[in-house]
Design a protein around this nucleic acid. Structure first.
Length: 456
RNA sequence: GUGAAUGUAGCUCAGUAGGUUAGAGCAUCAGAUUGUGGAUCUGAGGGUCGCCGGUUCGAGCCCGGUCUUUCACCCCA
């Protein structure tokens, strides 16, 4: 029989026990924080209708969508035979009407519209689920990864923005990671485009500005000119691009710079307010205004948030912003939302490289009963159930193998306690408990086992 | 999608100017007076050298393609 070498699709990964425990630790901490702020969990399907997804993430995003082939004889339905040369874009619309979700925000918007009559607004929800992107895999970039989204929809209050920053701060505080929270406002970017007389070129301008830190002023100029921004407009952008200073100084500068743009000034005002709230709340992470922060989906309309690790080099580990009319696309206008998404896989990578996982994310079973034979095992089973009632995880080695083997197994599994019940112990209703870390062991009455292990 | 690098036992890697049965360490398994792990010793198993094709008398080593992983661009968690 021919055997095949097993493999998984590019950019996907298996998670072994230790990894899953560590991932669950991250999810757990994040969910705890979300719940403490009153957010409620929802889940949506892995697949959405392609019509829900297409056009929401820009041209680039459309390309990165995984499309699911229709069931049935889709080739014939689309009028294709082996020899017809049809372009793949037109083809895909005919043979595919479902796609894997690309993020959690758009499905959430869809969910809100569909369930608007059951929802009490403002609606605060969190969602922890995998998303898929047909991107080229790299370090910290996968084709299947988890997002942990928190959003509040149906409220314009800037208190929400401030709270999200607080949530970010609390979350990374718990995970023991130092982060920098960068914020910007889409209205400021709009204002910049306006005062330079290039209101219609906002996208190329912001994309170019976004690269400032990475490629430098000169290259940014070149990029803008190659994108059709007139030289005089580029000239007007220079003081902005070369401005350096504290967040407060930047705000002062922007008020002046954007004096002729009502929208721009509104953006500045919003940021000032959010920053004021955040400062009054007193958070640990640094918060900085970064006008070069333009990335992100093009549906943001207000604040833009991005979080970077201060200790590791890996893209952003959390990002989000306000979107004023995402639900409008699905027929529910006038609803504004704001939210952020934590990138669990990148957070995992950062924590692993910095060794920030608590030790107990390694432990699995707390106690292992050595198996000496049928009678002893039966006794061990009884005691197991007592331990489990007391919340102590334990297991019985399934075979009466050599002690050496059973102990090696415990060692390999990093089980902290091995409980020995042999002929003698069974007769005397006692147990011998060995502390694997210390290498010490004691023999105690079986009925004291639970309290003994609870104490250790 | 564009450009580049990588791929040898479960893991980390050797492998000499292409030449007979491809090596090491770690891990695994079995032993070293059969109620005790993490140390040591002995021994064993385990590789169609990513895959397909080509050049050659002969390829792990050369060439082409393909896939994986990684890096840069693009974009992004």
């Amino acid at each position: 029989m021919a055997s095949q070498t097993p493999s998984i699709p590019k950019g996907t990964r298996d998670f072994s026990p230790v990894e899953v425990r560590r991932r669950e630790y991250i999810f757990g901490q994040l969910k705890d924080v979300f719940r403490l702020h009153g957010y409620q969990p929802i889940e949506t399907p892995a697949m959405e209708n392609l019509s829900t997804l297409l056009g929401k993430y820009g041209e680039e995003g459309d390309k990165l969508l995984f499309k699911v082939l229709n069931s049935g004889n889709f080739m014939a339905d689309a009028g294709i035979n082996a020899s017809s040369g049809i372009d793949s874009n037109g083809l895909s619309l005919k043979i595919s009407e479902k796609g894997l979700r690309y993020d959690l925000t758009v499905p959430f918007a869809r969910y809100v519209v569909q369930h608007q009559n059951e929802i009490n607004f403002p609606f605060r929800r969190f969602q922890v689920q995998p998303v898929w992107r047909a991107d080229r895999p790299q370090k910290g970039r996968y084709r299947e990864f988890y997002q942990c989204d928190v959003d509040v929809i149906g409220s314009n209050s800037l208190l929400n923005e401030a709270e999200l920053i607080l949530i970010i701060d609390e979350a990374f505080q718990r995970l023991n990671l130092k982060v920098m929270v960068k914020i910007n406002n889409r209205k400021i970017l709009t204002g910049i485009a306006e005062v330079t007389g290039q209101a219609d070129k906002i996208v190329p301008i912001t994309v170019a500005i976004d690269k400032l830190e990475k490629i430098g002023l000169q290259k940014v100029r070149e990029e803008m000119e190659s994108q059709g921004i007139p030289p005089e407009a580029v000239e007007k952008l220079l003081p902005l691009l070369s401005f350096e200073g504290s967040t407060a100084e930047k705000l002062t500068f922007l008020k002046n710079y954007l004096a002729d743009s009502e929208t721009g000034l509104l953006g500045v005002k919003e940021l000032e307010e959010v920053l004021g709230l955040v400062v009054s709340l007193g958070i640990h992470s640094k918060v900085e205004l970064d006008i070069s922060l333009a990335r992100g989906l093009n549906y943001y309309t207000g604040i833009i948030i991005e979080v970077k690790s201060e200790e590791a080099v890996i893209g952003s580990i959390c990002g989000g912003g306000r979107y004023d009319n995402l639900t409008g696309i699905f027929g529910l206008a006038g609803i504004s939302g704001v939210g952020v998404s934590f990138g669990a896989d990148r957070i995992y990578d950062v924590m692993l490289s910095l060794n920030r996982f608590p030790e107990d994310t390694q432990a699995s079973t707390r106690a292992l009963f050595v198996n000496f034979g049928t009678a002893e095992a039966a006794f061990a089973m009884q005691l197991s159930s007592d331990l489990r009632k007391a919340g102590i995880s334990c297991e019985l080695y399934p075979e009466a193998a050599k002690l050496k083997k059973q102990f090696s197994y415990a060692d390999g599994r990093a089980v902290p306690f091995v409980i020995i019940i042999g002929e003698d112990e069974l007769r005397d209703q006692k147990v011998t408990v060995k502390n694997m870390r210390k290498g010490e062991q004691v023999t105690i009455p079986a009925k004291e086992l639970v309290t003994h292990l609870s104490r250790e």
